[in-house]
Every structure is written in C-alpha cells, then in structure tokens.
Design a protein around this nucleic acid. Structure first.
Lengths: 202, 202
DNA sequence: CTTGACTAGAAAGTGGTACTTTCTAAGCGT
DNA sequence: ACGCTTAGAAAGTACCACTTTCTAGTCAAG
C-alpha cells in the first residue's frame, strides 16, 4: 500500500509517518520508484505500536526507539528476555553522586535481603533507589517493612504478568515489553479504585 | 528569610522560585518593602513538594497546581479525602466519542461486577477504560479474569497505602496525594524486580 | 500528452512546557 | 555612597513531538 493508505489505516498523518521514518521508528517501505514506496501490514502494526507506547504508555521517542531496537533484534539470547526488555525500558540515567551517606545503597541491600536476583550496576535497583529516596525527601517515609508489604503485593502482579507470557513464544520480548508498558496505566487506575474500595469498607 | 536564602536552602534558582510565584505554585512571601519579601519554612517545604511532584512524580505544572489547590483548601469535607485527592490526580480528559460499540463501558461493568464503589462519570474508571482499551489496541489482550487477578494484587497494594495514612490526621489529603504520586515509581521498579524474581524461580 | 494528485526526502517552522534571561526601578547593608 | 539584592514583568531558551513547506520527480485519468 502507499503512504496515504498507511496514513488512513492508522489514522496518523502522512507527515508524522515520514517523521517516524526519519527517526528510524518505522522501517522504510519497499521502494517501487524514486518517489513511491510500498508499505505492508507490518508497517501498520509498527505504527500502532509506536502510538500505543507514546500515547497510552507516555514514552518519548528515545524510549520507543530503544524498545523497537530490542523487538527487531534477530533472535536474541532467549535466556534473558526480561533483562533485555527491562534494559530497554529503563533509560540510562547518569549516576548522580550520592550526597547523604545514611541511605546509600538502601535499595540494594533491601533487594538483597529480599532475596531477589540482582547484581552490581543494576539499573532497576538504581531506579528503586532514586524513587525511594525521593519519597523520603518528600516526607513520605517508607520503612523496609512497608517496602516488604508492597513487594509481597507486587509479586502477585508480577506473577500475573509472567503467566500471561506464553513460554518460548517467538515474540516473547515484544509481549513482555509492550505488556509491561501498557499495563502500567491500568495498574495505576486499579490502585486508585482499590484505595477507595479498601478505605470505604476497612 | 530572603529569596536568595530560600533558593540556597532548596537548591532551586531564584529565577525558578519567581516562576513558581508567578504560576501560583508558591504563595507570596510577607512583603517587608516594595523590593523585599520574607519567606519561611512553609515556603521551603512547598518548593520541595513541587520538585518532588515534578521530578520524581513526573507531573506537569498544571497537575501540581491542582494538587496544591487541594492541599491548601481549608478543612475540606474530611469524608471524602480520597475522592478529592484522586480528583486532583486525574486531570480532566475530554470525553472522546467511543467508536467501537463492542467494548463500551467494559471497565465500568467490570468495576461494578467487582463490587468496587463507583458512579457515573467516574474519572478513574474512565482512565481504566482508556488504558484497558489501549492495551487491546496494542495487542495486549486482558480478559476480565486477568483483570481480577491484577485487582486482587493491587488491593494488597492499596491496603498498604491506606494503612500508612494516620486516620483523622490533619494533613491526610497531603499524605494521600503525595504518597500516591511518589510511590508510583517505587511500585513500577518493584514490578520489574518482581518479574525477574518470579520468572527465575517459577 | 497534459494536468492534477501523489510521493520521497530534507529543511525549516510550530506549539507546548518548564524554565532562564534580561530588564527596570527600587531598597539594603556596610 | 556604592555595590549587592529584590520584585515584577517581558522576552528569550531548550527540548520535544510533530507539522509545514519546499523541491523534484512519478503516476493516472481524460
């Protein structure tokens, strides 16, 4: 199909599609002449993926590019689908020098105590560290025990996440990444609803 | 204290503080002359709150303004702290006309079936509706039963949330709002870590 | 075979957000 | 009295996600 058809089918303007092509979010079509290219269903799907990640997922172009790179990678080491996916999800953060010695590595030691697998330079743990620290700064104190309570609950969430991925599937990476991103707003809304439900009836 | 001291204490530039004053995120100081005003600890705290919500919470100025308005409101109807807080958190969304009749009100009926309190025009349910629909569009199918599984887990999260709020506290609204926003990145990181832990050892 | 719609590709422009800079007129402080 | 600071307003900046405008070429109907 031509670019105008692609635009109609995806409800994305031709200009935006060209922008995605330039940005490498969308592979070029098969060129049939110097001014015409042929696009197919894979392009439709890709555009829908980009829109889903940017609109609902709230991701920026850079994050989407990383995710797409992972999805497009030919048969990655299946062993570490999750690590790969999570690497794409956690953008690199420049390691700011810690100013308070009191809470250095608090997240890391909590994760270790919890028995969850991690290693040095774990970007997800770094994220947790920052988020936890930010809570403290904002006056929302979270003790280790409370974190454990949250962890118990979130393990349940993760169990559902993992169960939803068909093991050994061809597009496991895609499902993990897209599912992780797209379900976040769902879980967020559920949390608000659950807060209500809990507080209404003890 | 003067504005320069406020800037030093909060590590926020004088220019930015003036910007916050203009935007109504920060109440003006007590003016001591036409070119000098006196700020106090409440200003320090307020600025830290704004930074926490924008930096870690990822909120925009508009959302922060809504939240601040709620926090500043004098003794709101204590009955509905949560509703007020959640209203501030869910920015207004223009109700887009639904195009597919198939899934209209899917979230609403699921919430009703779940027995969670809601009503017509519930913004949180609308959010869930959108997020759920976006998942389907992106090829991440979520059946009602899976949503129930997530809901069970998230109820646990909410229990911890609710337990952390001292009942009848003076600043309950503040704690609920700030806690809800600031803990989101924490929970997000926990989810990734839990996914790993679960998938590694069944 | 012409005419109008479409296309690729690149460059420049736009609107929104969150500040930052620059300005003036006026204290303040040593 | 001289430089440092301030309030307040206006204009400017950087970044992001597009959108517009351009050229040069192609295609399809009449």
């Amino acid at each position: 199909m031509r670019i105008s058809v692609l635009a109609t089918r995806t409800e994305v303007s031709v200009g935006t599609i060209k922008f995605y092509l330039r940005e490498g979010l969308l592979p070029p079509g098969r060129q049939t002449s110097r001014t015409t290219a042929e696009y197919d269903e894979s392009h439709v799907e890709r555009i829908r993926l980009v829109r889903a990640l940017t609109d609902a997922g709230g991701l920026g172009i850079a994050a989407v590019r990383r995710i797409i790179a992972v999805i497009d990678a030919p048969d990655p080491q299946r062993l570490d689908v999750l690590a790969t996916a999570q690497d794409a999800l956690t953008g690199r953060v420049d390691p700011e020098p810690d100013d308070s010695a009191a809470s250095v590595g608090r997240a890391h030691s909590w994760v270790a105590a919890r028995g969850w697998p991690t290693g040095p330079g774990d970007r997800v743990v770094e994220r947790l560290e920052r988020a936890w620290e930010a809570c403290e700064q904002a006056g929302v104190h979270v003790e280790d025990s409370m974190m454990d309570d949250y962890a118990d609950a979130v393990e349940q969430v993760a169990r559902v996440d993992v169960a939803a991925v068909p093991p050994g599937a061809d597009d496991a990476v895609r499902r993990v990444v897209v599912g992780t991103v797209m379900l976040e707003p769902v879980l967020s809304a559920l949390r608000l609803l659950a807060q209500r439900a809990i507080s209404v009836q003890g």
